[in-house]
């Protein structure tokens, strides 16, 4: 009871601060929490005409359908493989680039490189896909011709299922690595210069300085980014996948995001596609909690 009383006194004393909190709360309530009511259609046979209240309830039917669907193993493994690949290749790439940039002494050169690698982030996926089609077109794309000449065989990057994942990862790297370095560069700027000086006096070369001073200095940033990106692990992205998909590579290209679009928008199975989306979100939450737990387990502070 005592705690409660204290809260109410605090509320009276800081009333204007609480008032200031209201717009933020309203934002989350209206735009984030209220729409979650729509998730109920995952447990209904939803018909737009009948609406939320009129559509019949079917319990876990759509989830049962999903798990027993012949598409499920394929879509799940495609999603997981892409997620794993981006964990291995896309996640560390900005760290490496940031470290490299950090070693550049000439600040004009550093800034020029930074600006150049930020630009792709502002292009839409449609443009990136169009560039990819241009560069990797069968027989006529410049990169295809180059590769054909070097390896003396005929590459079909756009249609060959084996090349789908490398292309998607390469696209993502090109587009997003530069932008991803920003947070690490900020963290690098915060590393105490005295530590470098001390390390140099102890005889550390640049490699050792990086290993023993720089990396520990930005470790907490890396962990926070890792936890946050774990939640988005299954968000393989819709456009970049959809725009590269064709009949020949669909077997490796179909992921949850495109599957939901295909079922929900093209086929009008709103309830089923909502169930798929909800499943994906639950996996995302589980991943956030487990990575956070792991981080704390290894003695770091974690996200919360």
């Amino acid at each position: 009871m005592a705690g409660k009383a204290r809260l109410s006194t605090r509320m009276v004393r800081y009333r204007w601060l609480f008032v200031l909190l209201l717009p933020g709360l309203a934002y989350f309530a209206i735009f984030k929490y209220a729409p979650m009511y729509g998730l109920t259609i995952a447990f209904q046979d939803y018909l737009p005409f009948l609406g939320f209240s009129g559509s019949p309830w079917v319990g876990f039917k759509h989830f049962a359908d999903l798990f027993s669907s012949p598409d499920f193993p394929r879509v799940l493994s495609n999603t997981l493989i892409l997620a794993l690949l981006s964990m291995v290749f896309v996640f560390p790439a900005p760290i490496v680039v940031a470290l490299l940039l950090n070693e550049i002494r000439l600040s004009v050169l550093k800034r020029a490189i930074q600006s150049a690698i930020y630009i792709p982030y502002f292009l839409s996926w449609t443009i990136v896909a169009a560039l990819t089609y241009l560069l990797f077109a069968l027989d006529t794309g410049p990169i295809t011709q180059l590769m054909n000449n070097i390896f003396n065989q005929r590459f079909d990057f756009l249609a060959d299922p084996d090349w789908f994942r490398p292309l998607v990862i390469a696209q993502t790297l090109w587009k997003e690595v530069g932008w991803g370095t920003i947070i690490y560069l900020a963290a690098l700027a915060g590393v105490d210069p005295n530590l470098y000086e001390a390390a140099r006096i102890d005889g550390a070369n640049r490699w050792k300085q990086m290993w023993h001073v720089t990396l520990p200095g930005i470790r907490s940033t890396i962990i926070v980014v890792a936890i946050l990106s774990a939640g988005n692990l299954l968000d393989t992205g819709f456009e970049r996948i959809y725009l590269l998909t064709n009949s020949l590579n669909r077997s490796v290209a179909e992921v949850f995001d495109t599957y939901v679009y295909f079922l929900g928008i093209t086929q009008g199975s709103y309830s089923y596609s909502t169930a798929v989306g909800l499943f994906k979100a639950v996996v995302g939450i589980v991943l956030i909690y487990s990575v956070n737990w792991l981080a704390r387990r290894f003695g770091h502070s974690g996200l919360y």
Binding site: N246, S247, L248, R250, S251, Q267
Partner: peptide
């Protein structure tokens, strides 16, 4: 209505393959 688009995609893909 419920599954047609999904099923017909099998055929369209198989044909191209």
């Amino acid at each position: 209505v419920a599954k047609g688009a999904q099923l017909d995609q099998i055929i369209a893909d198989a044909r191209v393959k």
